[in-house]
Design a protein around this nucleic acid. Structure first.
Length: 652
DNA sequence: TTAGGGTTAG
């Protein structure tokens, strides 16, 4: 790297006469640079800028900077702007280095001022960048379009729409940038990021001319706001669509948990002959992860290879693949991808640790974490610790987990988030240490959320502690008034403690509040014979083969000797009807279908809600009688049923 | 010398 700099700078070292000309000019000993030498100096500037562009570390830049000073070119706005930009790109704070380099330039131009503004903005120092802007104006310089674009971006990052509006006004008044696409696109983006999508849309509608960027950023904004219909409408109206626009739609559907439509869009994109890049691929991979279908997972890997991507080279694609394989129940494949990665970063490690944790492989997760800490320079972040703590929780490793929880703050300076507390409550609760869980909640520096109280309620239910369950449920009823699951958990806790009159009271309360299980919301997916995905909804016998599925389920129930856990049914109906409702749970329908079509190997079901106790018991039994492993992914974790036993040790 | 789409979470 050093030799590269020397090679590029070598011609400058030889041109001493030029250098003395430049020095004299900058020291006001020369009124102007002779035209014959001007071209040559411009060439030297270009060479230095190119050298800077090749720098890959702050020390290389500092070295090059030393050359620049020795050759008296540190007065060149062009060179110094590049230098500040590169420092910023390499995460050197502008305040610590860029600003002092800037201050040595006696006549900075608008480019250099803008570079400094952008440097401060990268560091999140909006105030300082405004000060630089003001001194730029004070020196009589006219800002450039991207000066305003940068300042608008800065206002967006502080969610300061008023400032943004002011800056835009100034750009119109001062520079006549009223129709400049850079400025107007930044304005749209600013409004959107400040949460004023309607204002962004208004600007868009009033634009005399729009480019791909105007369209795409608005489409993305609609997608992120959950308004896919509006996004779709805009996309259709777009006069020409490129890869980024298509990808925005694909990832938009993924962000809104609509993986099927994401894949449909991707198919349309390919039919339209649009190229695919890593970003598109990450979207498609995430869609497959959401579907949880192993077949799709293999399809996407083949496609990636066909498109010429080597997952081993791309951190984004690699991490997404690890996550997808874990979520599709293919842990071995996830680990293969992980091992094949040439460069592993905190994402790849975290994805893999979380993958192990999800599958109950606590020891593997912790070993991987320790490997990361001892053999690499990768620094863990809060998500890495979430994975590690989840692993401890699922693996019942309480003492180890407590140690990690303390260390993450003391040793690594990562303060625990509400999610970390959530995991700790789960970990303690699982071991029946309910009082300790309660005191931990009391020490939380932030308000406990529904997850924390839910973990406590779930644990109280399992351990039959009705009074703690009551307290937790009290908080949950306020935080999540429409969530019927909390009422059910409380009922179960009462039932376990034999407090039947309380069970009746809560059920009555539920009826009075008109709480009903949203039947259509529960959905399970399973792959058919050819890898096609079948969806089943609770209580809906609409699948073309549901008659046969019903028969299979009845047969299985008999073989297993299944006794329905009717306690979980909150409808006020007779026992027989309760049994029928339980038999119509989506994961059972999916299971029945998979058994009906037959096949070998692990049977994989993906559910969008937490698996209920009756289904859990049923799956245990069925795994025993059919002699196949059943893998159910619910919204919390994996349940791996084998020979009548589940990997979650019946705690979830 | 500038801009739009992306990876981890019970």
């Amino acid at each position: 790297m050093v030799s590269l700099s020397k090679k590029l700078i070598a011609p400058i070292l030889k041109s001493s006469s030029l250098i003395s000309t430049v020095a004299k000019f900058h020291n006001d000993q020369l009124p102007f640079i002779p035209f014959s030498q001007l071209q040559k100096i411009k060439q030297l500037e270009c060479q230095l800028v190119s050298t800077l562009e090749h720098c890959r570390s702050p020390s290389q830049i500092k070295q090059t900077h030393a050359y620049i000073i020795r050759k008296c070119l540190h007065q060149s706005s062009y060179i110094i702007a590049k230098l500040i930009r590169m420092l910023s790109k390499l995460n050197v704070s502008t305040k610590s280095y860029g600003a002092s380099v800037f201050s040595e330039v006696r006549h900075p131009n608008a480019f250099l001022y803008t570079a400094l503004i952008r440097g401060y903005l990268v560091d999140g120092m909006l105030k300082e960048s405004i000060l630089v802007y003001n001194s730029m104006r004070g020196n009589g310089l006219i800002p450039l379009s991207f000066t305003f674009a940068a300042l608008l971006k800065g206002s967006a990052s502080e969610s300061n729409a008023n400032l943004g509006r002011q800056i835009h006004g100034e750009s119109v008044k001062l520079g006549g940038f009223g129709a400049d696409l850079f400025v107007v696109n930044a304005l749209i983006d600013m409004y959107v990021k400040c949460g004023h999508l309607d204002c962004g849309r208004k600007v868009f509608d009033e634009m005399p001319e729009r480019d791909l960027i105007s369209w795409t950023s608005l489409i993305d904004a609609y997608a992120k706001a959950g308004e896919m219909d509006c996004a779709d409408e805009l996309f259709s109206a777009m006069p020409s669509k490129d890869m980024v626009a298509w990808t925005t739609m694909v990832t938009g559907f993924v962000q809104n948990a609509r993986p099927r439509e994401a894949l449909e869009f991707f198919e349309r994109m390919q039919t339209a002959g649009v190229q695919t890049d890593e970003v598109t691929l990450v979207g498609v991979i995430n869609a497959c992860a959401q579907l949880g279908s192993a077949k799709y997972a293999y399809w996407v890997r083949d496609m990636a290879v066909r498109c010429g991507f080597n997952p081993a080279n791309g951190a984004h694609v690699g991490s997404a693949l690890i996550d997808m394989y874990s979520k599709c129940g293919c842990l071995e494949e996830a680990y293969d991808v992980f091992n094949s990665l040439q460069r592993k970063n905190v994402y790849s490690y975290s994805c893999m640790i979380i993958g192990f944790a999800m599958h109950g492989r606590a020891t593997s997760a912790i070993e991987l974490f320790q490997e990361m800490m001892t053999t690499t320079s990768v620094k863990p972040n809060s998500v890495t610790f979430l994975g590690v703590l989840t692993a401890c929780s699922h693996g019942g490793m309480l003492e180890q987990g407590k140690l990690f929880f303390d260390e993450m703050k003391e040793k690594y300076g990562i303060s625990p988030s509400v999610d970390h507390y959530n995991t700790m409550v789960d970990m303690l609760g699982r071991r029946g240490r309910l009082k300790e869980a309660v005191s931990l909640i009391e020490t939380m520096p932030m308000e406990p959320n529904g997850g924390v109280w839910g973990a406590l309620l779930g644990a109280s239910r399992v351990h039959g502690d009705a009074s703690i369950a009551e307290a937790a449920a009290g908080h949950l009823f306020k935080l999540e008034p429409g969530n019927i699951g909390n009422y059910i958990l409380l009922c179960e806790a009462y039932a376990k403690a034999g407090r039947w009159e309380d069970v009746t009271r809560v059920r009555k309360e539920m009826r009075e509040k008109g709480l009903r299980k949203k039947a259509a919301a529960a959905c399970s997916r399973v792959e058919g014979e050819r890898g096609e995905v079948h969806e089943f909804y609770a209580g809906e016998w609409t699948h073309p083969r549901s008659g046969e599925v019903e028969g299979v389920l009845e047969e299985l129930a008999e073989k297993v000797g299944h006794e329905a856990r009717v306690g979980g049914v909150v409808y006020d109906v007779d026992e027989e009807e309760k049994r029928r409702i339980l038999m119509g749970h989506s994961e059972k329908l999916a299971l029945g279908y998979a058994v009906l079509v037959g096949g070998e190997g692990t049977l994989r079901i993906v559910k969008n809600l937490r698996i209920c106790e009756d289904c859990h018991v049923f799956m245990c039994g069925v795994s025993r009688v059919i002699g196949r492993d059943i893998l159910v992914r619910d919204n919390f974790r994996f349940h791996h049923f084998r020979h009548g036993i589940c990997s979650c040790s019946d705690f979830w």
